[in-house]
Amino acid sequence: MGQTLACSSRGFNIQLQLRSSKTIVCGDSATGKTFLFELLMNAARDIDNLYFINYASVKSKANRESIIKHIKQAYGQIIIMDQADDVQEVDNRIMKAINENLKNTYIIIGRAPKLNYCFTDVAEVSIKNNLITLEYLESPVLEV
């Protein structure tokens, strides 16, 4: 499936190579995960098909219902979730909706999200000379 999300935000050039419909971004504290989320939110005003979810956005029941409805109905969007571990603890129906809707591309930022995904789709944030990329932990599976 491969897709690239490229944009600039606050002096950083972001080049994310997304291997499949779900990219899991993990890493220790202070490794740039939430920083990447914030930069992408800042760049969103110039990119039409991005949708953001984080812990703050799921605190109210009305917002959760709206997010679940959006995920189920969305098509062709890049849906970016930060604090996935906290989000899934508030309402696991959000993760279920993601697992069921493969019509979008998902960037899920967290330590252990409860989703169906391949280990080859797990990456860490890399920041070098104002360039932000993803470094995948496993090589992609080659189809024969």
Rank of each mutant, 00 (worst) to 15 (best):
Q15I: 08
I14S: 07
R45S: 11
A44K: 11
R19F: 03
I53F: 05
C7V: 14
K103H: 10
G11R: 07
L134Q: 09
D48P: 08
T105W: 01
K128R: 08
C7W: 11
A44S: 15
A74Q: 02
F37R: 00
D46T: 07
I53P: 00
T34N: 13
T31H: 04
S139E: 14
D121W: 01
G11F: 14
T4N: 14
I79T: 07
L18I: 06
R111I: 00
I68C: 07
L40R: 06
I79L: 11
T120P: 10
L16T: 04
M1Q: 09
N13Q: 12
N54M: 06
D82C: 13
G110W: 02
I24F: 00
G76N: 15
S21A: 11
E124Y: 01
S8V: 13
Y136L: 04
C26S: 15
Y136V: 04
I67H: 06
Y55E: 09
G32A: 03
A74N: 03
M1A: 15
N49F: 06
V87D: 09
N42W: 08
L137K: 14
K59P: 01
E38M: 06
V122S: 03
I108N: 04
V144K: 10
D91C: 09
F119K: 07
V90I: 14
E100P: 01
L36P: 06
V90F: 09
T23C: 14
C118P: 00
Q83M: 10
I24N: 05
N42Q: 13
K61H: 09
R111E: 09
K128F: 11
Q15V: 10
I67E: 04
A62F: 06
N104H: 06
N130K: 15
A84T: 00
I109N: 06
N54Y: 00
L50K: 02
E138R: 15
I98N: 07
P113A: 13
A62P: 02
V90T: 12
L102Q: 12
F119I: 10
K72Y: 00
A123V: 05
N99V: 04
I79C: 10
N101P: 08
N130L: 14
V144N: 12
I107N: 06
N116K: 10
D121A: 03
T4L: 11
D28F: 08
G32L: 08
L50E: 05
H70A: 14
G27E: 08
E135S: 10
K22E: 02
P113W: 00
A43W: 07
G110F: 03
I14G: 07
L102G: 13
C7G: 04
L134H: 05
K96P: 00
V122D: 07
T31R: 08
N63F: 09
D28I: 04
N92F: 01
V25Q: 05
S57R: 13
G2T: 12
Y106I: 02
D86L: 15
E124M: 08
N99S: 12
V25E: 04
L131A: 01
L50G: 04
Y136Q: 03
E65I: 11
A6W: 01
L18C: 10
T4G: 02
K61E: 14
N104R: 07
E143F: 12
Y75P: 00
L39Y: 07
I14T: 13
